[in-house]
């Protein structure tokens, strides 16, 4: 499945919920199936700056594709990062670097994120693309 297809799939899932509580419950649920970062890598080095909560991110290259692992001590950021991991993990570095990730806006997550919070989100995307660039 391409990045675009995965974005579309997530958009369709979120369309099932007509209120924000449903959406956020689904988001939190998503966080529970996040590929977890190695406990030993929950360090300063893997911490994403700009979040009020702690979000750790790691990446690995396998057969020319990038796989992400993450975790957070808060559930909503964990849900957000899990959606990003779901969309970007297993893709080629150049596709990750070029992904526009418009689905975040379309599922109504970005509009609910205040500047400081969305900075956290922006930092997550930046860090994921940075890993992809490094593996290119």
């Amino acid at each position: 499945m391409s990045i675009k297809d995965k974005e579309l799939e997530i958009e369709e899932e979120f369309l099932l919920f007509d209120d924000w509580t449903g959406k956020y419950e689904h988001l939190i649920e998503q966080g529970r199936s996040l590929p977890m970062i190695d406990q030993l890598k929950r360090t300063e080095e893997h911490l994403i700056k700009g979040c009020q909560s702690q979000v750790w991110l790691d990446a690995r290259l396998e057969d020319g594709k990038v796989f992400y692992f993450a975790d957070s001590d808060a559930q909503i950021p964990k849900g957000v990062v899990s959606l990003l991991v779901r969309v970007l993990s297993g893709e080629k570095p150049e596709d990750i670097v070029n992904a526009d990730l418009g689905f975040i806006d379309r599922i109504g997550l970005k509009e609910h994120l205040s500047p400081t919070r969305s900075n956290g989100l922006v930092s997550m995307v930046k860090q994921m693309k940075f890993y992809a660039l490094a593996h290119q």
Binding site: W20, T21, Y24, S53, D73, A74, Q75, I76
Partner: peptide
């Protein structure tokens, strides 16, 4: 067991 950020986020909602 809950992060203040998550709670604050929902309170805002």
């Amino acid at each position: 067991g809950l992060h203040p950020y998550d709670v604050g986020f929902i309170l805002d909602k």
